[in-house]
């Protein structure tokens, strides 16, 4: 993947080319790295496709300032598998195995920005599975949420919900 990325590195230029149905689409990550993809891949990304449609296909270079060059190859890989009809449980397990919780979150935000329904559904489940045994504090940090309960309110709530606070994993500092 690293070689591919460097060979695709180009300076960012939005070029108006003569569109043809087979023209590749250039996706430009937030850190200015260009990824060339087939138009069928772009179709999987609703945000990209509607951008192409709005300009009648004239613009084939799409800047994606919210997505890093770290995340984009994963998104592309998932879309390629999806088009090929090769999304299996095994593929999905392998796909997320190498990602830590922060990377899963970044990818989820990318899928949300690009509006890729299947990837969003899948990553929702991954995040749900990964936070299922985490502490309330961990979940707050993970979602970037500020606790707006007073200490008294929270203590009272925790007392009422005492039956639910069993089997919580200790926070793993590496994943914070």
């Amino acid at each position: 993947m690293a070689e591919e990325v460097s060979s695709q590195m180009n300076s960012l230029s939005i070029s108006e080319t003569n569109p043809s149905s087979s023209a590749t689409i250039s996706l430009v990550s937030g850190d200015d790295i260009v990824f060339k993809v087939e138009p069928t891949i772009a179709k999987e990304m609703e945000t990209v496709q509607s951008f192409i449609d709005e300009t009648d296909g004239k613009i084939t270079t799409i800047p994606l300032p919210n997505i890093s060059s770290h995340d984009l190859p994963y998104v592309i890989e998932y879309c390629e598998k999806s088009i090929a009809g090769k999304i299996t449980k095994e593929f999905e397990a392998e796909f997320v195995k190498k990602l830590n919780n922060e990377e899963v979150k970044e990818l989820f935000l990318a899928a949300n920005y690009l509006n890729i329904k299947k990837l969003l559904d899948f990553l929702s489940q991954v995040i749900a599975d990964r936070i299922a045994n985490k502490s309330v504090e961990y979940v707050r940090r993970y979602f970037g949420i500020e606790n707006d309960f007073t200490p008294e309110e929270e203590a009272k709530l925790r007392e009422e919900l005492a039956w639910t606070f069993t089997g919580v994993d200790p926070d793993d500092e590496d994943e914070n």
């Binding site: 969003l120 559904d121 929702s124 489940q125 995040i127 749900a128 936070i131 299922a132 045994n133 309330v136 979940v139 707050r140 979602f143 949420i145 500020e146 606790n147 707006d148 309960f149 929270e154 709530l157 925790r158 919900l161 639910t164 606070f165 919580v168």
Partner: peptide
């Protein structure tokens, strides 16, 4: 979307996250 995939017991607990 994420929360709707969690088991009931975890959701009860996560009521403590914020209002």
């Amino acid at each position: 979307e994420i929360l709707s995939r969690l088991p009931v017991k975890i959701l009860m607990q996560l009521q403590c996250v914020c209002k």
